[in-house]
Design a binder for these strands. Structure first.
Lengths: 218, 218
DNA sequence: CTGTGTGAACATCTTCACAGCT
DNA sequence: AGCTGTGAAGATGTTCACACAG
């Protein structure tokens, strides 16, 4: 399949073809009228715009179950991410290989960041250690942090933080589940105006969308 | 602090107070004019609406690093989730306790689901096993699935799936990181119209937002 | 003729601003 | 006098529909 139309792509993605065309148009005019988009060229352009063509060295701090799971996660390499180092505070972990990469001790954090030119850090420590690790990462030059610890991190201006809270995803499922169950059947007495107004679209797609609750500022 | 105003809550959440009030109003009129919202009552009403007051038994299938990390995750209990069972295909895992819960074998999946009245399942298996596990969960009565395996699952109408792709979060960080780096400096020759139009707001808040890319339909 | 690229129409979401309750 | 609850205005996002390139 050398070429693909906006109609086909839209159907595959479950969106309107006009939206897809308009979105693509913000990246430039990469389609051919009457023909469609050249698949290879389009993939390249989107990859480049998203930063997939670059090499992003990342460090993972906190090699517990979650840290180990992340280190083993196959999806990173194909998206340009390279696990440059694994860091843990437990001296007993030092030197032990996880996913083929030897764990290093927290003492060397600053050196590791600088030696590898790391600008993206992943925090998978317990909540109590997260802010301190974050401060050290930032001081060492990291400007983007993916935080799995259940804490809101304080960072200076210019540093990006994304917090992943695994229970929020479950929360969203449970919310819809509750709604399925209560469909018309048992009208809960103590809820005056909740009926129609809150009954928004229950999106049928997989993955995070606008349904996420309000979040904390940086 | 027995009472709180929309202004205070909005400041804490980093949003406009009018938006907060309007959002609350969809749940009913739980505030008092001239006073604010009664904290305890508000918490209860929101908790109930979100389903936090219910008990949600969940099963986790696939007890590798990620499954174990999820089983140990502290945030679940406080949000009404109870890990009812851990299931793995490896017979060697059977009986072994993870997070204090003995792992059970996949053979008993259907019985476990039914005995515990589970309607939410978490898939943390390798990609190859995910669809099969999914089919069995659905057949056994599960109607909501949180999928960590890097596959898009096929499910019948009426079943909700949320896919968590850990690399997408990194992707979003890398995208902003790239943008920080390329600020004005090096105008990449091969990008005609990408400049201003695509330079949207770089949100300063932590956590998933509308920046996620288009997703697959069910 | 076919399918992109895009103004214009339409829809949804956010913020303003103020009437009205406490 | 203070703060909610909400119509109306404004901003943003999506879809339509068609001129025009290939």
């Amino acid at each position: 399949m050398p070429t693909v139309s906006s109609e086909e792509l839209a159907a595959a993605a479950g969106v309107n073809s006009a939206k897809l065309r308009k979105d693509f148009s913000y990246l430039g005019s990469y389609g051919t009228r009457g023909v469609g988009y050249d698949v290879e060229y389009l993939v390249y352009q989107i990859s480049r715009e998203l930063g997939l063509t670059q090499d992003w060295p990342v460090v993972i701090v906190g090699i517990g179950n979650l840290g180990a799971a992340l280190a083993n996660y196959g999806g990173f390499a194909s998206r340009g991410f390279r696990v440059a180092a694994l860091i843990d505070a437990d001296p007993a972990m030092a030197g032990k290989p996880v996913a083929g990469i030897p764990v290093q001790h927290t003492d060397d954090l600053e050196r590791i960041i600088q030696d590898n030119g790391v600008s993206i850090g992943v925090i998978a420590t317990p909540a109590g250690a997260a802010q301190q690790v974050c401060d050290r990462l930032v001081a060492a030059g990291v400007t983007s942090i993916l935080n799995f610890a259940p804490t809101v991190l304080n960072v200076p201006e210019g540093v990006d933080v994304r917090k992943v809270d695994l229970s929020i995803e479950l929360q969203i499922l449970a919310f819809h589940e509750q709604r399925k169950a209560g469909e018309e059947a048992a009208a809960d007495g103590a809820l005056p105006a909740a009926g129609s107004a809150a009954a928004r679209k229950a999106s049928a797609d997989q993955g995070p969308d606008g349904a996420a609750p309000a979040v904390m500022p940086a």
